[in-house]
Nucleic acid binder design. Structure first.
Length: 806
DNA sequence: GAGTTTGAAACT
DNA sequence: CAGTTTCAAACTC
């Protein structure tokens, strides 16, 4: 997993994630009771303005108010929240201390807060689909006033779910960490509870789709989480966040949702005293969008207790840093907006496990939300990092392998991005890693808080957010939910990551190919980049598939350039699937483009390199190197071989080769290596790599002949193997019918010699008849097969005779 | 497998 | 931008 520095983050492509549905589920200890309060926002309200409308759920308000805003609203009450396009819903828990007077809007940053509204009041989300759930830190008094289980409480954690609206506006659900309560801290008595948790899911929405946002949040009473449970929670809490695209029957109209779930970082103001995990129940109701298929993003908690319906989005902050979070994200392919895609991803940071699932349905009618089905967590890797005075983190990655798991790939990139937003400190200033634009709104007052995602589901249309600069959602190919097979299906998952000190130790145990490196800038927001290689190695691992279009991949600067499209116009997934040759770098530390691994945006794995820095352990250096390469050449990581519009003939090297002595007929030449002709942009000397070149034709013929020969040999061997296997299959039952085994001793020296004689005979016969080499090989192999048949047959006969006589 | 050749990448 | 150096892959023996 790569952690990208904030600097790089700023230059990341807008397309981060594109998922159709997100289901957040949290599994809590069985004893932990998770009250579920569902808030439904049934009534969509048309947006009157293009400006994103932000609804802020700030803790500054009275606890009851927040509770009502998030949890009180029920499905029957449509007036509370309806979101239309262009609406931005902001639920923010800010960390910053506030005056006794609850200023709800305080949490919002000026840039984003333009249309910020308090969530306490009914709000409508429309068209532009930016939903920000930001928990603003509440004053101590407010916290005290929150006896109600539904009241949001400071958890030192922040969950921000953001989605990109069709217009490019972000949808953010942020549960920042609220100010710690002394009392609660005492109750927990666990300093580790202070640890920041960030769970960020960014889903890029389709630009062409109109967002309909339905968010239902169910708050869980943190009170229920007893002190006794806390230790268990730290180690065992499983938080599952699923974003699943599903069709809501109740939805007034089709909706497309893009989600960004961001757990902002809070480094300040929160001492780990927070014992109570805030429970937020909110529901965003999908808005009718003509021509857009309904989408539902649901976040449900898969706690042992129960699973929430897809329409519900439970977000429950965990008390302790040690939590398992499963986030399921489903996205929709542009081509078939009605299709629902669920991508499973399981990421555990610290003790959290984040699982994201995305399922794809081919037809709108087929819209499926897997959120209802609890996922079985299968820890792939577990990293336990112990720190003095710091919460221990256990990283399990990936956890489960749902059948509908898809890899997260960035179009044209082999990097798999996971955006993780974490608090720099136990209490932190909310940092929304997702985008610089949206962060201001959330960060100022936001405090990290534990978000209880139990039984939460969110149905939110995903729409590309431009202002957020988050992600330009790309349609996912619904037909290929498992793995992106084409550039269209390439997806990127970006998860803001906690700063190195906290996260990196946890991630160090990640599989090779995963880069965990905090941003060199020491920013509190980092990006975790999951190399495609890792994904390839762990096909079963859960990943969030983010669909993005290549066009959208054109962010002004930045890491997007890391992504390198496969050569020869092949999709990233295709190229990634191919076995990569191990590098042999010795001096470049695999941090320069000399290294093919690095140039392809991959981590070195099973390479022969020495002093390799292209790995997780040297993420900082690696990020610097990437940045340096990009500074030298912004297109350094872009494919050199452009994909022709029609056929391979249009493919050509982006810069052209500069061969002097190879005649462009050796693999030294990048054009020849890519099996393309040199073009006018090449600066080669004595080029023979052109269409009419006789040398080239000869080489091509030779290469073709060699390839054919290899194929024939392979086919012959395969056929023989299958024949032998078939024979064994048919013969063995008869042989072993007596309960015995085939007497292997039957293959005596004499038998072996006889077999060799037969083979030699065939070889001689082929030679005498002047048969081609391939034919001769076939004859020999076939003879060998016949010999084996005879041997097996004789053995079987002997076995039968023995059984009769004996 | 060691050594050479080659051209892209990096550097000046 | 051009020339030089560095580097690792491709190639040869």
């Amino acid at each position: 997993m790569d952690v990208v520095s904030p600097e790089l983050n700023s230059i990341l492509p807008d397309e981060i994630m594109d998922t159709e549905a997100i289901v957040i589920e949290e599994e809590l200890p069985a004893d932990a009771t998770v009250p579920l309060a569902q808030v439904e926002l049934p009534t969509p309200v048309p947006m009157e303005t293009e400006l994103p409308e932000i609804v802020n759920l700030s803790s500054a308000g009275t606890p009851m108010q927040r509770t009502q805003a998030l949890t009180t609203s029920t499905s029957t009450d449509s007036s509370h929240c309806s979101m239309g396009s262009g609406t931005q819903l902001l639920l923010t828990a800010s960390v910053a201390p506030r005056p006794a007077t609850p200023a709800v809007s305080k949490s919002t940053s000026p840039g984003v807060s333009g249309g910020l509204q308090r969530l306490t009041t009914p709000f409508a989300i429309q068209g532009n689909h930016q939903i920000i759930l930001n928990k603003v830190s509440a004053t101590a008094s407010s916290d005290e006033k929150s006896p109600s289980p539904h009241v949001l409480k400071q958890e030192g954690q922040k969950l921000v779910v953001t989605g990109l609206s069709k217009s490019g506006q972000p949808i953010v659900l942020a549960l920042p960490h609220t100010n710690p309560k002394p009392g609660s801290a005492q109750a927990t008595g666990d300093a580790k509870a202070q640890t920041q948790q960030f769970k960020v899911v960014t889903i890029g929405g389709r630009p062409d789709l109109k967002p309909v946002v339905g968010v239902q949040a169910v708050s869980t009473a943190s009170q229920l989480l007893g002190t006794t449970q806390q230790s268990t929670l730290q180690t065992q809490q499983l938080k599952t966040v699923q974003i699943a695209k599903k069709t809501q029957a109740s939805s007034s109209g089709p909706m497309i949702t893009k989600f960004i779930i961001t757990k902002p970082l809070n480094s300040k103001g929160v001492s780990g005293q927070t014992s109570v995990s805030p429970v937020i129940t909110g529901r965003v109701i999908p808005q009718n969008t003509p021509g857009t298929p309904p989408r539902t993003i649901s976040i449900s908690e898969t706690s042992a207790v129960q699973t929430v319906s897809s329409s519900k989005v439970p977000i429950s902050p965990l008390k302790s840093p040690s939590k398992l979070t499963v986030v399921s994200v489903a996205s929709q392919s542009p081509s078939s907006p009605q299709k629902s895609v669920a991508l499973p991803i399981n990421v555990a940071l610290g003790q959290q496990i984040l699982a994201v699932q995305q399922s794809t349905a081919t037809s709108p009618a087929k819209g499926v939300s897997n959120s209802s089905t609890p996922q079985t967590m299968k820890p792939v890797q577990t990293v336990a990092v112990g720190g003095v005075g710091t919460p221990q983190f256990k990283t399990i990655f990936p956890l489960t392998t749902p059948p509908n798991v898809q890899q997260i790939q960035v179009p044209g990139s082999r990097f798999h991005y996971v955006r993780l937003v974490t608090a720099t400190t136990g209490s932190g200033v909310t940092a929304t890693a997702s985008t610089s634009t949206n962060s201001p709104a959330i960060q100022p007052a936001a405090k990290p808080m534990v978000v209880n995602t139990a039984a939460m589901r969110m149905s939110v249309p995903i729409v590309p957010a431009q202002s957020m600069k988050q992600v330009v959602p790309k349609p996912l190919t619904s037909s290929a939910p498992q793995v992106a097979t084409s550039s269209q299906t390439q997806q990127r998952l970006i998860m803001p990551a906690t700063p190195l000190p906290q996260i990196q130790p946890n991630l160090t145990n990640l599989p090779p190919g995963t880069v965990l490196a905090p941003a060199p800038g020491a920013g509190n927001v980092g990006y975790a980049v999951l190399p495609a290689q890792y994904v390839t190695q762990l096909p079963q691992s859960t990943f969030v598939t983010l669909a993005s279009s290549s066009s959208s991949f054109s962010t002004p600067t930045g890491i997007q350039t890391q992504a390198r499209l496969s050569l020869n116009g092949l999709s990233t997934s295709d190229s990634s699937s191919r076995p990569r040759k191990p590098c042999n770098c010795t001096k470049s530390q695999c941090l320069k483009l000399y290294c093919d691994c690095f140039a392809n945006g991959e981590f070195c794995n099973n390479c022969n390199c020495t002093n390799c820095f292209n790995n997780l352990e040297h993420e900082t250096e690696r990020l610097k190197a990437i940045k340096a390469c990009l500074d030298r050449n912004p297109e350094a990581f872009k494919p050199k071989i452009g994909k022709g519009k029609e056929g391979e003939s249009d493919r050509r090297h982006s810069k052209g080769c500069n061969c002097k002595r190879s005649g462009c007929l050796k693999n030294y030449c990048e054009c020849y290596e890519a099996k393309i002709m040199c073009s006018s942009i090449c600066k080669c000397v004595g080029c023979k790599n052109f269409e009419e070149s006789p040398e080239r034709k000869t080489l091509m013929h030779l290469a073709d002949a060699a390839e054919v020969r290899v194929q024939q040999q392979t086919a012959a061997k395969t056929k023989l193997s299958s024949q032998i296997s078939d024979l064994l299959t048919r013969t063995m039952p008869a042989i072993t019918s007596g309960g015995g085994k085939l007497p292997y001793t039957f293959v005596t020296k004499e038998v072996a010699e006889a077999t060799c004689d037969c083979l030699m005979e065939q070889a001689e016969q082929a030679e005498l008849t002047d048969q081609p080499h391939a034919v001769a090989e076939r004859m020999i192999l076939e003879e060998f097969g016949r010999c084996l048949m005879r041997i097996i047959s004789s053995a079987g006969q002997a076995k039968a005779d023995c059984s009769i006589n004996c």
